[in-house]
Amino acid sequence: MKMRFLTSFALSMVVLLSACSTNDQVVDDGRIRVVGTIGQIGNAAEIIGGEHVSVNALMGAGVDPHLYVATESDVSLLSEADIIFYNGLFLEAQMDDVLKQLGQRKTAIPIGEQIDPALLLASPIYEDEHDPHIWFDLELWSIAVAAIRDTYIEFDPANAADYEANAAAYLAEIAELHEIVHEQAARLSADQRVLVTAHDAFSYFGRAYGFEVLGLQGISTQSEASTADVRNLASIIVEREVPAVFIESSVPVRNVEALQEAVAAQGFEVVIGGELFSDAMGSPGTPEGTYLGMVRHNIETIVSALLGE
């Protein structure tokens, strides 16, 4: 009786473990093997590389890059890769060692660190560090994307022309979107532009498009929100009569719900204006599953919620 219980327990463990499938296989078909960390980087790498590259992004929809720990299969993907692109600036905090070590042996480019530091925002906590969420300032992101193009050209000069062309087209789209975001933002008056989110991922967005940005958790989701944080933020929301707050796809919803309750207790009602994509893009195959789609979704959601639509 007891032995049977033990054996069936052991068997179910084995079944469960084998059900945990491995990721994408490494494809060896003559194309350049590229691995990106966050989806936005993988997206750009794919577009610019075109048919010459095969790209794997480690962190898919809904993954929090601040907390993501590389698995065995991730590490093997990375070691097989020809080029690695990552954000740097300590976004992929748990993978820092792995990426630095790989950088010594192969081409591993932290594209965020290719940007002139003068253009970056400082981290509020660590003096020498910068805020890593650069992709929401489309102009800054263009610089990072250009770094991808340059890496490709250096690695594979033969196809330089293709890379140039792909990059030029993509950059043009980004520039166009940049204008659209400005237009949308302009629909809000100056004091309507208060963006309250789950964590401080939108500072670049705020600087670029004129929003005051407030996050419940700090720059990294590693730090826990305290009751003081919730209280203070709730007071600000009530004071400024902010109509909507936003959850993020990669952060637990509960945090924002707690904020909502705190605000409600002060007699004001704030709605959850929608889900924003902060550190991760949406599911692949959906419009929000691309960088451009994600940015567009964000600004539309933000503006319509803050307008009270």
């Binding site: 898919g60 809904g62 993954v63 929090d64 907390l67 720990v69 796809s249 990669s250 952060v251 637990p252």
Partner: peptide, 9 residues
């Protein structure tokens, strides 16, 4: 950690 719903939970 790859599961978006899990993050939200």
């Amino acid at each position: 950690q790859r599961n978006p719903d899990a993050r939200q939970a």
